[in-house]
Amino acid sequence: MRSRQAASDRLGSTEIALVGAVVLAGIVVARNYALWRDQFLVLCPAWTIFGVPCPTCGATRAVVAAMQGDLLAALAWNPLAASAAIAAVLALPLAAAVLIGLLPAPRVPASLGVATRTVLIALFVANWLYLLLYFSG
């Protein structure tokens, strides 16, 4: 069955446009953080109840800080979320270039190798370990 499937597929224009829209919306929301922050001022229940940060702890603050240009603060809050946010913003011009036909659409692999999967899981675990240390300190 897999022999008939492509090893990777190019992203379509709709997907690229939608991802670009998500990033743009994220920038707009984060830049206006002050407008909605006070409406949703709440402590993380996992932290409050268990005293342990969840894997996504600090992600919102990291993304907001990254979108506001405070990269060091973003990386401190949640390195993985901050990296994803920075990568998403950096990908915006590339997405625009693809949409107007200057660049070919990127390919998404049909499967990930063991090494790639191991690295991704290791990054996730390392990020959580960092959060455990960061929030306990």
Partner: peptide, 14 residues
């Protein structure tokens, strides 16, 4: 992708 592969494109998941 993490659990063994997505045989069809991202568009199908969408």
């Amino acid at each position: 992708l993490m659990f063994g592969g997505a045989p069809r494109p991202l568009e199908v998941t969408l």
